[in-house]
C-alpha cells in the first residue's frame, strides 16, 4: 500500500527522514507535480499516535526544503503508486493552482478565548441561553473582523471558525509569507491589547494544512 505525505513541485527535494513504520520515502512526478509517499503495510495506516507523528514529521521536513507544499491528510492508503498518480492526474489543474497559492507561505492560527471567572450559571433558561448565544456569536464576528483587518496587510488568505461558545470565541487560520511570522504575532498582540477580557493565542507556524484543501473552505 502507498501512503501519501504531501504534494509538491517537480523536481522535489526529498528529506532524509523516514515515514510511517520507518519506511523509506519515495517520490513520483506527474508533470509539474511530485507526490511524496512511502510503501507501508495496510495496518500501519491506522491513525495511531506514532503514525500521526511520523506523517506530520515528514510533512514538516518536506515543507522545510521545498517552496510549495500541499500537506496531505492522513487518509486511507492507495493500492499502489499507479493508483496514487491516477488520483493526482484527476485533479492536476486544481493541485497546481493550490501549489501556486501556498508557495513560500506558512500557516498560523489564532485562538481567541474568553477569560471566564467561573461564576456563570450552568443551567440558564432557554431564553437566557438564546440571548447569550446571540451575544456570543456577535462578539465572535466582531473579534474576527478586527483580527482580519489587523493582519490583512500580511496575510494572503484566511479561514475563520466562529464558534461563540462560552470559552472559545474564535479559531482562525491565516496563510502568510514564511518571513512574516514575527510581524503577524506583533499585529495580533496589538489587537489583543485592546481586548483585555479575551486571551489571544497564536499557534504555528506550520505547513499550510488548512489551505491545501483544493475544494476550498475548512472542514
Amino acid at each position: 500500500m502507498v501512503h501519501l505525505y504531501a504534494l509538491t513541485e517537480h523536481p522535489a527535494n526529498l528529506p532524509h527522514v523516514r515515514g510511517i513504520g520507518a519506511t523509506p520515502l519515495a517520490s513520483a512526478a506527474l508533470g509539474a507535480i511530485e507526490a511524496i509517499f512511502s510503501e507501508i503495510d495496510g495496518d500501519s495506516a491506522e491513525p495511531t499516535e506514532s503514525a500521526i507523528l511520523a506523517h506530520a514529521h515528514v510533512v514538516d521536513e518536506v515543507a522545510r526544503i521545498n517552496d510549495a507544499v500541499l500537506p496531505a491528510r492522513l487518509a486511507r492508503p492507495y493500492e499502489n503508486e499507479l493508483a496514487l498518480l491516477a488520483a493526482v492526474r484527476d485533479r492536476d489543474v486544481q493541485f497546481r493552482a493550490a501549489l501556486d497559492r501556498v508557495r513560500g507561505c506558512v500557516e498560523m492560527g489564532v485562538r481567541v478565548l474568553r477569560k471566564t471567572n467561573g461564576n456563570e450559571a450552568d443551567t440558564p433558561s432557554g431564553s437566557q441561553y438564546m440571548r447569550s448565544r446571540l451575544t456570543s456569536v456577535k462578539l465572535a464576528e466582531t473579534v474576527a473582523d478586527e483580527l482580519d483587518e489587523a493582519v490583512s496587510g500580511l496575510t494572503r488568505d484566511a479561514l475563520r471558525g466562529v464558534t461563540g461558545t462560552r470559552e472559545l470565541v474564535l479559531t482562525a487560520a491565516y496563510l502568510l509569507a514564511r518571513e512574516d511570522g514575527g510581524s503577524f504575532r506583533a499585529a495580533v498582540e496589538t489587537v489583543a491589547s485592546d481586548r483585555p477580557d479575551l486571551s489571544y493565542v497564536c499557534v504555528g507556524p506550520w505547513p499550510a494544512y488548512s489551505f491545501a484543501l483544493v475544494d476550498g473552505g475548512a472542514s
Binding site: 500521526i52 506530520a56 496531505a72 492522513l74 486511507r76 492560527g109 484543501l213
Partner: peptide, 22 residues
C-alpha cells in the same frame, strides 16, 4: 500541541479523492 497536530493531520490537508478520510 499534540491535539492541534492531530486536528491538522486528520482534519486538514489535501485529500485526493475526498471519500477516504479517517
Amino acid at each position: 500541541t499534540l491535539v492541534e497536530l492531530v486536528d491538522r493531520v486528520l482534519n486538514k490537508g489535501v485529500t485526493l479523492t475526498g471519500d477516504i478520510t479517517l
